[in-house]
């Protein structure tokens, strides 16, 4: 699989995504600087976590104007996969590639810890490798991960299988206690309509090696590799 990791000036999970994809999963990975206007030939585009532009305004609010974003959009229009993790998810929301918005965590504090999420739809190019309703252990690390959208959007996300992951207890209950940031419907990740864009707050690249106490994130990379045929 060929993958591109986009680097914004304040990206800080770019090297982690690169490592998980190349060293752990054996993909061919390239960094692409956000000021570039061309995207090298690639199967997958990853928008990594971080603080793209310091995020003093709103997370991801300025990154969407980066030159590379129009190429990312074009890549997605060809039904090719784009995954935005954490700040990458926030950028996808700001760019209008995914619906809804992020609010500050209801605790009003940054929160870094392992949580449990459940695969809500395992029939997509990002989640095929997972079992139906599989429960995954993955870390979150964000101050604004409280997903919000209007009622109609939520209805559509639910009905069209566009919710990718939900925060759950270890036993798979989507309770309020299991919700680390106040996200609507315990949403941890969503797809676009054609399900070739995934935005998620948890960090699969931090859960791709045994030494980091979870390998549950590997399923995303494996699903993509299977889907693109290498």
């Amino acid at each position: 699989m060929n993958a591109v990791v986009v680097v914004f000036p304040g990206s800080n999970c770019d090297a982690d995504c690169f490592h998980a994809l190349s060293e752990v999963m054996g993909s061919r990975v390239k960094f692409v600087w956000h000021k570039e206007r061309d995207l090298p030939k690639t199967d997958v585009v990853v928008l990594p976590g971080g603080f793209s532009y310091g995020d003093y305004l709103r997370t991801g609010a300025i990154a969407r104007f980066s030159p590379i974003m129009s190429e990312v959009r074009r890549h997605a229009e060809k039904d090719r996969p784009v995954v935005g993790i954490c700040n990458g998810f926030q950028i996808l929301l700001e760019a209008g590639l995914l619906p809804g918005a992020m609010l500050r965590n209801r605790s009003l504090k940054f929160s870094c810890k392992f949580v449990h999420i459940q695969v809500a739809n395992n029939q997509t190019m990002f989640t095929k490798a997972y079992r139906k309703h599989q429960i995954l252990k993955m870390p979150i690390a964000h101050g604004e991960g409280n997903y919000f959208c209007d009622h109609d959007t939520l209805k559509e996300l639910r009905e069209k299988g566009r919710i990718a992951f939900r925060y759950v207890t270890e036993n798979g209950e989507a309770t309020d206690r299991a919700n680390p940031n106040g996200s609507m419907d315990n949403i941890a990740g969503i797809f676009n309509e054609r399900k070739n864009i995934l935005g998620m707050m948890p960090h699969p690249e931090r859960a791709s090696e045994g030494v980091l106490s979870s390998t549950d994130g590997q399923g995303i990379w494996e699903s993509l590799a299977e889907c693109v045929g290498v």
Binding site: C13, A15, K109, F110, S111, C112, K113, A141, R206, L212
Partner: peptide
């Protein structure tokens, strides 16, 4: 305290 710190970024933290 430490949940407010990103203590896992860089994916090298082996003992949390």
């Amino acid at each position: 305290v430490y949940e407010q710190y990103d203590h896992m970024v860089k994916t090298d933290t082996v003992l949390l």
